[in-house]
Computed example of a mutant assay.
Amino acid sequence: MTSGAAAPYGDDRERAIERRQTQPETMLKTASRNAGKIDAVRQIKDWTRERFSLNEDIPVMVAEVTCGLPGCPPIETIVTFWTAPETRHAFKAFKPAIEVTADDLPPPWMKNAIISDSSDLSCC
């Protein structure tokens, strides 16, 4: 590099150093905010396994989705599990995961009624 030339990444490097110095604190705040959601998702999975007598090796997925359609709640929690490679069960709770309770899950006798043969879960 010749004298008088600007150092590569001059200002950008300083900004990156500043971000690194503040980023750990930001990451901790994000983790603590998400801790409640993570715990809620784990609890929903446990309730689902218990309610429908699912073994630990059965995949259970819990997802929060937003809905922009008129009349939809702003956030829904969708729970999906598979009892066979082609047998998917799905149900929704019309609220964020952190607000879901065991009473929001369908009763055990509905296990076959919640079999979903469609990738579209836009209704109930």
Rank of each mutant, 00 (worst) to 15 (best):
residue 3 S to A: 07
residue 4 G to F: 11
residue 6 A to K: 14
residue 8 P to A: 02
residue 9 Y to P: 00
residue 10 G to Y: 03
residue 17 I to L: 13
residue 21 Q to V: 09
residue 22 T to W: 08
residue 23 Q to I: 00
residue 25 E to W: 03
residue 25 E to V: 03
residue 27 M to P: 00
residue 28 L to S: 12
residue 29 K to C: 00
residue 30 T to M: 01
residue 31 A to P: 00
residue 32 S to K: 11
residue 34 N to L: 13
residue 34 N to Q: 13
residue 35 A to F: 04
residue 35 A to H: 10
residue 43 Q to L: 11
residue 52 F to W: 10
residue 53 S to V: 06
residue 54 L to M: 10
residue 55 N to M: 03
residue 56 E to C: 00
residue 57 D to N: 13
residue 59 P to Q: 10
residue 59 P to I: 04
residue 60 V to H: 09
residue 63 A to I: 09
residue 66 T to R: 14
residue 70 P to H: 05
residue 73 P to G: 05
residue 77 T to G: 10
residue 79 V to Q: 06
residue 79 V to N: 05
residue 79 V to P: 05
residue 81 F to Y: 14
residue 87 T to R: 15
residue 92 K to M: 10
residue 93 A to T: 06
residue 94 F to H: 13
residue 95 K to C: 03
residue 96 P to Y: 07
residue 96 P to V: 04
residue 97 A to Y: 03
residue 97 A to P: 02
residue 99 E to K: 14
residue 100 V to P: 06
residue 102 A to E: 15
residue 103 D to T: 12
residue 103 D to N: 14
residue 111 K to N: 08
residue 113 A to L: 07
residue 114 I to N: 06
residue 115 I to K: 15
residue 115 I to H: 10
residue 117 D to A: 08
residue 118 S to Y: 06
residue 118 S to G: 06
residue 120 D to N: 15
residue 121 L to Y: 12
residue 122 S to M: 07
